[in-house]
Design a protein around this nucleic acid. Structure first.
Lengths: 95, 95
DNA sequence: ACTGGCGATAACAAATGTGTTATCATATAA
DNA sequence: TTATATGATAACACATTTGTTATCGCCAGT
């Protein structure tokens, strides 16, 4: 029986993607994860967030399921009504 | 003689743009400003940064002169070799 | 005056994101 | 079961960013 790899193993497979690519993917996963967390913490549905942010529900769904890499103004529009914004931080500051 | 408004005055003109719009513009200015600072602090030209980041010089120039609103992966690709990344932070954390 | 590097920009093609409308499968409540 | 709300997705037009190549004006150094 074939052992299926975990997602983490998949992501860290050297032959799958370059280190830079993996780094970018991890970055996006973390970013989108925080965005989803923020929305759910406010108890908002995608449709409700769409209304108050001005970004349409299908666009939000595409973002959250990572079908799409948002533009920073779209990300800003979505995050702002959730009480968050985007900031540039030194890489070392990653806690 | 007509008094010319400062940029700050221009940006804060109530009749010019909505508060939300102004907020977005200020956000972008701050973001791009930090990006330029980071590049110059490393003593890199746009062409050099283009080489190590994989983002072409015209694209970087368009970002820095705000002709364009980047996608987050483009911003990430540019910031990463400069030792920075993007993070989601609470609005209150603005110092 | 010339040279070289700088950022900005033009022009066009290619890639990608977003709006729009509608629908889907699923889960939950009545 | 029926109704309702959810997130995901399809399909297409439209808008925007990015790549590509080339060039521009400017400025510092020779």
């Amino acid at each position: 029986m074939k052992q299926v790899k975990t997602f983490s193993e998949y992501m860290n497979d050297e032959e799958r993607v370059s280190p830079a690519e993996r780094e970018k993917i991890n970055f996006e996963i973390e970013l989108i994860g925080k965005m989803i967390e923020a929305r759910e913490q406010k108890g908002l549905s995608q449709r409700e967030l769409a209304e108050i942010s001005g970004v349409k529900q299908p666009a939000i769904a595409r973002l959250e399921s990572m079908k799409t890499t948002p533009q920073i103004d779209t990300l800003f529009k979505v995050l702002n009504p959730l009480g968050y914004t985007i900031s540039i931080v030194p890489i070392n500051a990653k806690k």
